[in-house]
Amino acid sequence: MTIFLKRLFLFLIVVIVIDQLLGLLLSHLYFNQHKGQYAQTTYAVDSANQDIIIFGSSRAVRHYSPTILSNAFGKSCYNVGRDGQMIPYYAALEDVIFNRQKPKMVIIDINSWEFFEGNSKYEKLSILLPYCHKHPELIKYLETSSPFERYKLFSAIYPFNSSLFIATNNKLFENKLSLAENGYDPLDKNMDEAGIAFTKKIIAKEKMDVSVKTAKIDTLAMRFYKQFLQKCADAKIPTYVVISPTIAPENSSIRKDKLIEITKLYPTATFLDFSSNPNYNNHLEKFADIFHLNKKGSEEFTKELVSKIKL
């Protein structure tokens, strides 16, 4: 057994050394991307300090043009939205950004479905792992998916789990990537025939879906949402909670009612609902896919949003 333990010890040292060396390489690759979502997230976490900050998921990234908002209000603006993310991410990012400086206005693009019960929204926070050493305040958010995240960070490779493909692609084909405009990355395309057929099927399916009326609400997500609005209220920051346009009118649901109910509790928060706006519902020409407006639709929407915001 002694031989085994000695060899195991030696083997673990080898593993640790290789882990740390490869981790350094991966870190170098990751933090030296200049385009793409990882680079945008790095900017959002480490540097975003604009007057207007837009939080949200891919719908925020595709729907809100900071240039239009900047021109309208004469203030700098940045879109820190990130594909696939939900409420816990907005709360985590708000924590980091507000620790640096308080913006003058906050827009949060949200959807009632983000209150669904499930772990995936917490697991997706793993994209924040590369930033935990520099911003330890993020660890508590990551611990919502596993209490061991703090210890897993002893590995230098683990924070870059699943990011190698994209990071390599972003580095190798940097010239081919479009440069997002202050975090805004519109989809400059229209739906093709297959996309339209797919969309119609989804719309028909969602109309039939009655589960939204009886669905349970994720209480932790709700707590993060309240925390988000509370921080804005404490800093007296005007906060616009927006449901941006959807391709079909959103069904009324317990989740949506809860979203509105919570928002009303905070005096600095204003709720703007575009999900049943006839200017967008069923206007397939304004959408790039089932979830996202295209460039034309998003610019029209941002202008309409500007007209509803009073600063």
Binding site: V14, V15, E123, S126, S145, N161, S162
Partner: peptide, 19 residues
């Protein structure tokens, strides 16, 4: 050892850790 370490590294880089 190189092959074993490579498998550990592959798990850390490409694995899905959502339990």
């Amino acid at each position: 050892w190189g092959s074993i370490v490579s498998m550990i590294v592959a798990i850390l880089i490409f694995g899905v850790f959502n339990g």
